[in-house]
Design a protein around this nucleic acid. Structure first.
Lengths: 348, 348
DNA sequence: TCTTAGCACTCCTGCCGATAGAGTGCTAAT
DNA sequence: ATTAGCACTCTATCGGCAGGAGTGCTAAGA
């Protein structure tokens, strides 16, 4: 930890990590000597491994076993990956699939599904806080008992709706005219901008003499607040973790407890949301490894997350997997999906 | 199977089943002799058990183990329960909690959660199918690239939407007029009725000369197909199954495979929906035990489901648990929640 | 000083056999 | 028809033992 890791140490560690990720079993000095292209003997590798162990990067389950990376070991490895990150190639068919989503919710669901499929772990997606949508079209529909249905279509083609209860009932003609007014005046702005614009207009007293405009502004005002699909978390692929975690540990009781903790967490989404929200502050890709997680239940797992922005708001997509996950792949996938989601939301 | 089970056999079996459900371990003749109030010796009980085994109701894991119920054994036991079902006591606080739900979706989510909490297994709820929805209002909104958003509002205030791709692009005026036409002509009919009416009108050749009407009919036709909001399934409590299944089987690999199959099923909800829809045909409570399930992945599990009706539509709530579940409790809970959901839906 | 061959050591894993215990099926007596 | 007694079978557990994997250390070589 304290000492600096030499280049050779890093290379050995990287090889060890990739192999352990692949096979899931402790890696021996002999294997490393053979497969690292440094031309070293097992004995030398053993010396290096002893050093790495002193520094806390690797660990051996018992005296006569090979080495396994510690969380710090993964950290060093992942930092190396992040430093030399290659440009992500965006898959056109994936983009088409995402673009087919009807609502922001669908989009998030597809994104998390996609991440899960590609990474073979748990994918998640958290929509932008809610104002990250540009208004294409608003629509008011009369329901019974004076209630009004507000439908908002975004430039990306996503739909949200909400039922409001205006102070006084409106007839259909008024609603149509109000919608036309709002559409003509505010289309193309983000919901947040629309709201501030509305507040601004409401201040202009002369406009309030026009009953229609006043009505329209009122309706839009109450219709646009809390138009947030943002606090719903979309999680996909939990079943995939079962076999993966199973392969890792030999202790059955431990395994099941771990699994249960994770599934519980996935079910009580608000806990997970609170956790994931922390990643929103970071720009770009965040990798949290094992015990770096704030929540103890997640200590056996790693999280790779990426924020994306759309209309000045940020959301998150990512993957949760065992610490022994393919970070390279995960980072690529999460980064790619994140960028695509952003583009789809922006409406190109 | 072929022979009729005597009353004494049934009582022994019932005792055996309840004990096995409670403890999860094979039940011995000695235990049954002591705890069944028939005043029999272990030897006699052994004879009875031998008979039950011939008939396929119980099974012994190995020569010197106690007996375990088979699926047929559970079946006989459960049929006994269903025959003498007692009136369910409705809990007022539960009803209040359910009534707090804002939408049908929320209600279903609460119901499944409630079932899961009370039964300690997986709770599910399937909203009424929605084919009986009546059209209040239809709306067409132009999206980019010639695609059109169709929004359908039901008389109950429920909203569904769908994106279609008409053969030729339509401008906003056409869409508005088309919507007005459909609304004027068909409001108040069920979606199904609307569709047949449309087909009827399309046959009347003179109408086809009117380009607008023809357009409107086309749009509505493609917009209304597959407009079923009822196919979302709400599932809660999957994490609870982990420890339960774990306790049952000793074979770790088997256990994990079983779990994985179930979780996968829960994630691919459409499969589960297809399965659960079959219960809709049955009135009241359905109990499906182990291998009675049509889908092999569910063979290690039992399902207790109850249909409920509201406004002539039927939905389902239920629980999925190991075959070794507390049927008595499950039946009571499912029945109770089912009735409450019905009342809440009707009461609105 | 760094590397490496050789070797002793540690620890895991799988296997064998013996033992204790649980629960049954059968038989003969009531 | 019931039941006490008994032999039998199968499981679960434990200790010991051999095989193997991989290491740490030491001493020799570059």
């Amino acid at each position: 930890m304290t000492q600096e890791a030499t280049d050779r140490q890093r290379r050995i560690l990287a090889r060890l990590v990739t192999e352990y990720i692949e096979q899931g079993e402790p890696v021996s000095s002999a294997w490393l000597a053979e497969h690292s292209d440094l031309g070293l003997s097992p004995a030398t590798v053993r010396n290096i491994l002893a050093r790495l162990e002193e520094q806390g990067y690797v660990h051996q389950p018992h005296t006569s076993a090979g080495r396994v990376p510690t969380d710090s070991g993964y950290r060093l490895y992942v930092d190396g990956l992040l430093g030399s990150r290659k440009r992500v190639r965006l898959l056109p068919d994936l983009e088409a699939r995402l673009r087919r989503a009807g609502t922001v919710g669908d989009l998030m669901e597809n994104a998390s599904q996609e991440i899960s499929r590609a990474s073979h772990h748990v994918g998640f997606a958290l929509a932008p806080a809610g104002t990250a949508i540009r208004l294409r079209h608003i629509d008011f529909v009369n329901l019974e008992a004076g209630r009004v249905l507000v439908i908002v279509v975004s430039t990306g083609g996503q739909i949200t709706h909400k039922v409001i209860e205006p102070p006084a009932p409106c007839d259909d003609v008024v609603l149509t005219q109000a919608a036309n007014y709002i559409n003509a005046e505010f289309a193309g702005l983000t919901l947040h901008e629309v709201q501030t614009a509305i507040v601004g207009r409401m201040r202009e007293e002369r406009l309030l003499y026009d009953a229609l405009i006043s009505r329209a502004l009122q309706l839009a005002q109450s219709g646009l607040t809390e138009h947030a699909p943002g606090d719903t978390l979309y999680v996909q692929g939990a079943s995939l973790l079962i076999e993966h975690v199973a392969g890792g540990s030999a202790d059955r009781e431990q395994t099941l407890q771990t699994l249960r903790a994770l599934f519980r967490m996935i079910e009580e989404k608000h806990r997970l949301v609170a956790l994931i929200s922390r990643y929103l502050e970071a720009q770009g890709i965040t990798v949290v490894i094992g015990s770096e997680n704030f929540v103890a239940d997640l200590h056996p797992f790693s999280v790779v997350a990426s924020t994306f922005t759309a209309a000045d708001e940020t959301g998150t997509v990512g993957v949760i997997g065992p610490t022994r996950m393919r970070y390279q792949k995960a980072i690529t996938v999460v980064d790619g999906v994140s960028q695509m989601v952003s583009r789809v939301l922006e409406g190109h």
